[in-house]
Design a protein around this nucleic acid. Structure first.
Lengths: 200, 200, 200, 200
DNA sequence: GGGTAAGCGAGACGGTACGTCAAGTCTTCCG
DNA sequence: CGGAAGACTTGACGTACCGTCTCGCTTACCC
C-alpha cells in the first residue's frame, strides 16, 4: 500500500486562491492610505484587487476584519523583543516600533476601531489577542527580569508600569496628534524608570 | 422717553428652533447608547427627534459633528479643576471625571473618531480646542504650582508629565478595555509623583 | 349724510401688490422658456421675481395655475376673429395665430398639462373656459355665416368641422413635432373646405 | 465532431430578471391609473413591484421612460391594419383602436408628456419611432392603394390627409375631453373622404 | 478521464441610507 | 396686515454600497 504524502488535509473542491487573498489585503491598505476608513468600501477593494465581491465576503464577515487582517499581516514581523539588553533598551526599541505602527493609516484606523467599539466587540478582542497580548507579556517579563537583576526596585504593579510606558505613546499619537520621536520616547522611559527607583 | 429693548440683533426670517436643536442632540445620545456609532444614521436621529433631515444638515455638515456637539454639551459642566488642593488631589479628581466621560458610549465614540482620523481632521482639531486644551492648560498650571510650593521636584518636561497622567487612563479604557477605578487612579498618580521625586 | 366717493370696495389692510404679481408671472415665463416645466420650481420663481414664496402661495394654489395664468395673460390679445372676411380667410388667420401660441414653451406646456390630465381636472376646465370656448364659438359662428352666405354647403356637424380645422394643427405641432407653416395651413383649410363642397 | 449549441451569447454575471421587469411595468400601470402621473413616484413603483429602486434606475433613466415602456408593452398588440378592406373600413378600425388607447391613463399620460416636451425631447422621438411611425406608414400605404383602386381621387398631400384622420381624434380626446365614439369616427372618416372626392 | 465539489469573476438583485432639493407651512420683523 | 426672509417638517429624488444571489467557468480531488 502506498502512503500518500498528504501532510495537509484537503477538503474537496477548488482551494482558496492565495493570489486573491493578498490582492485583497494589498488593495485594502492602498485604499485606506489614499482615502481613509470612512471612504473605504468593499466594492472598491474588490475592483482594485480585480476580485469578485463574494470572494471577500466568503472569507471575512466584515469590512473591519479585512482591515484588521491587513494590519496583522503588515505588523507580523515587528513582534519581538530584543531579549538580551537592558529594560531601558528594550522599551526604547519597543516603543519606537509601536510609534511607527501607529503612525500609518492602517494602525491608526485599527486603533480607532478598537477605541470606538464597546467592551465586548470582536475587533477589540481580536486586537487584544493578536497584537496587545504577546507584547504586553514580553514587557512584563522584561520588567520582572530587570527587578531580578536589580536594575529597578521591586514593585507590585507591573501592569500599571506597562501602561505608563505604552499609554502616553498611544495618547500622544492618536489623541493629541503630536509626533512621537526618539527624544520623547527617551524622556518617557527615563521618567518612568525614575518612578521605579532606577539605580542610575 | 421710551427705551427700545433691542439687545439682540435679529436677522430676518424665522429664527432657529432651540427645541429642535436639543431634541436632535438628545436623540443622538440615546441612539448612540442603544446601538453604537456604526448603526447611527441621520435618518434615525431625525425620526427620533421628530425633526426633518434637512434641519440636521442645515446646522451640521456631518454625522460626526452632531455626535461631537452632543459630546460637548454633555461634558460642558465637567470643565474645571479644584484650584486649592494638592497636585495629588487635583489629578485624582480630574482623572476620575475623565474615566467617567470615557466610559460612556458618547465619549468612547468621539475618542474613537479622533483616534481613527488623520492629523489634519476637523474633528481632531475641534476635540483639541474644545476639550483637551483647557484641561491640559489647567493641568500644566497645577503642576507648576506644585513645583513652586515644593510639593514636587523641578522638571522641564511638564508636557510629558501630563501625558503620563492622562495617557494610561485613555489607553486602559479605550484600548485595553479594562476598568479604571479609584484604586488604579490612586496608584497611577502615586507612581507618577514618585517619578517627580514627591517629597512624601 | 356724507357720501364718500369710494367706488371700489376696499378690504382692510395692505392691498395686493400688482408689481409682485407681474414679476411672478414674468419670472415664470422666463424660467419656463429657459429650462422647461419639469425644472420649474416655486422657489426659483420667487427668487427670480424677488418675492417671498408665501406671496405666490397666497394667490395660486399650485404651480400649474401660475403657469396657466401666465399663459392667459400672454394670450389675452390674440382672442379675436376678423369678422368681415371669408371663412377661408378667417381660419387662415385663426390657425396661424394658434400655431404661434402652441410653438411657445408656455403654450406647449399648458397644452401638455391639459392633455396629460384626467377629464375632471381643474386645469383642463380652466383651459376650456378661458381659451378654447370663445375661439370655438367664434369658429362655429363663422362657419354658420359661410353656410348662410352660400360659401359652403349645409352640414349638420359644425362641431366636427371645427375639429377638422383645429385638430391637425394641434396634432402636427404637439405630437408629431413638425412645423406648421402658412403652406400647411392653406392646404389644410382648402382640403377641409373641399369636404364642405366649397363652391370654389 | 461536436457542435456546441451556443446560440445565445451570454454576458457574464447574473442575468436580468424578467420577473422584476414585468412587475415594475405592471405596478407602473396600476399606480398611474390609481393616482395619475404627478403622484407617481419611483419609490412607490419599487414598493408596489417588490423591487429595489436601483433595479428601476438600472434599466430606465427616468420616470417617463418607465411609463413609456409600459405604454409600449400594453400597445404592442394593436399594431396592425386590416389589409384587405376598404380605406373607410381601415381607418374606422384604426381610429377606434387609437381612441381606446388614448382613453387610458397610460395613453393620456404618454401623449401629455410628448405634447409638453420640446421638439428635441427623447420621449417624443421614442414615441415617434415606436408608435407613430409604423401606424402612419400603414395609413399612407392604405391611402395610396385606395387611390390606385380608384376609391378616392388622386392627391399630393397624403401627409395632410393622415393628419386630418388622426388630428381630430387626438384633439377631441385629449384637449377637449369629449368622448370619441363610433359615430364620431364614422362621421369624421366620411367627411375626410368627401374632401378626397370619394366616389361614393 | 468523468464526476463532484468548492472557489472564482462578474454583475443583477432587494434593500437602506445618503445628502439634496423642493414642497407647502410657520414665525419673525419691517413698512 | 401684506410681504420678504428664511427656518420648519415632509417626502421624493437619484446615488452609492450593502450583503446576497445566480450565472458560466476554473481548479482541485475522487473514483
Amino acid at each position: 500500500m502506498t502512503e500518500h504524502k498528504q501532510s495537509k488535509l484537503q477538503s474537496p473542491g477548488r482551494p482558496r486562491s492565495e493570489a486573491s487573498k493578498t490582492a485583497i489585503l494589498n488593495a485594502t491598505v492602498e485604499l485606506l492610505e489614499e482615502s481613509g476608513y470612512e471612504a473605504l468600501t468593499i466594492e472598491a477593494i474588490a475592483a482594485r484587487a480585480g476580485v469578485g465581491k463574494s470572494t471577500i465576503y466568503r472569507w471575512w464577515s466584515n469590512k473591519s476584519f479585512v482591515v484588521f487582517e491587513a494590519f496583522l499581516v503588515s505588523t507580523e514581523s515587528t513582534l519581538f523583543f530584543l531579549e538580551d539588553v537592558t529594560l531601558r533598551g528594550n522599551f526604547r526599541q519597543q516603543l519606537n516600533s509601536l510609534a511607527t505602527t501607529l503612525n500609518s493609516a492602517l494602525g491608526r484606523t485599527v486603533v480607532g476601531l478598537v477605541a470606538g467599539s464597546g467592551d465586548d466587540s470582536e475587533i477589540a478582542a481580536a486586537f487584544h489577542n493578536a497584537f496587545l497580548k504577546s507584547r504586553r507579556e514580553d514587557a512584563i517579563r522584561v520588567i520582572e527580569r530587570a527587578i531580578t537583576k536589580g536594575e529597578i526596585q521591586y514593585t507590585t504593579n507591573l501592569d500599571i508600569i506597562a501602561d505608563m510606558f505604552y499609554g502616553p505613546v498611544y495618547y500622544r499619537l492618536l489623541i493629541q496628534k503630536k509626533i512621537v520621536d526618539a527624544t520623547f520616547i527617551d524622556t518617557l522611559v527615563d521618567q518612568v524608570m525614575k518612578s521605579l527607583g532606577a539605580l542610575k
